[in-house]
Amino acid sequence: MSENKQHIIIIGGGPAGLEAASKLGSAGYRVTLFEKEEQTGGKLRTWYKLYPGFRLAEEVQDFLANEIKINVPEIFSNAEVVNIIPDNKYHTVVLADGRSFIADAVLIATGFELFKGEKKEEYGYRIYDNVITSADLEKKLRLGQPLTTANGQTPARIGLIHCVGSRDKKVGNVYCSRLCCITGVKQAIEIKHHLPKAEVFNFYMDMRMFGQNFEELYIEAQQKWGITFIRGRVSEVAENIDGSLQLKAEDTLSGRPIKMNFDLVVLLVGMVPADRTEAIGKSANLGFTSGSFLASADAQIKPNETNTPGIFVTGTCKEPLSVGETLSDARSAAVRIISWLREKREIN
């Protein structure tokens, strides 16, 4: 590797990190990517199909893996970054094992975690056997496991609860996770794919169908699959003696409290920043959003820059994004890093 090549370190090997890495690699830069897990791919590996077209998450994964194979030779797995030491010329990235690396530019792509469902105890996750999260449902679907209740019965009625851990001041997350709505619609349809006879109900506060073909999928859910949408936020879930669940909400459109029995309840858990994001961000003097995501320097014209020159952010470590949006954002970050490095070289 030639010495005069500028060096970019990317933290996180999910879709955002991988896509940016391959784009920067193909542009001729020296790119090093640190992934804390054994394998790259991030949360994409835990998902089955993607909205709105039900394509397999695996296909996107393969696409990213192929790109990266060609363009980025240096990937460190099981490499957890603990902090960044920013400096005028070079930034130092320090790993948990004590090794450190220097780079001209650092791109943070640490991604998200799902909100821990048990934090909303009133929904009974990990207390009642038949309350699962959207991630648990994806896992079942991906592994081809039958959609059954905890004791192996076919559920006749399934409820999906929107906004679990999002838009909720009481858990400290006032922001909207944006993608749970469409995930709820997608999963409701997937449930109907597997269990055409099951009744499926979604409990929502607002349906936020902003993406391409999202509203169409919402319409399809109602028209083709007969899924019912009830406007009311669930206040609590209780377990009946037979293990089925009772949901309490207000059917706000009829203006009356509603209680309903369900065999299976899916919590559409929101997105929160990954655990290490806060520590890394603080070490690099970055700003944070109200939800503790990493703040961009400017929402419109500097979406991937931060208030520390040479440190960039992309993907779901800065805001909840879909897979498609994440990849676009990663490309945007790559383009900005390239232009920034050129400016830097010209100044020196």
């Binding site: 105890e121 009133e122 009974g124 207390i127 609590e236 209780a238 377990e239």
Partner: peptide, 9 residues
């Protein structure tokens, strides 16, 4: 306790 049901359970 109705909002932290594991107690009554």
């Amino acid at each position: 306790s109705h909002l932290s049901p594991n107690i009554s359970l």
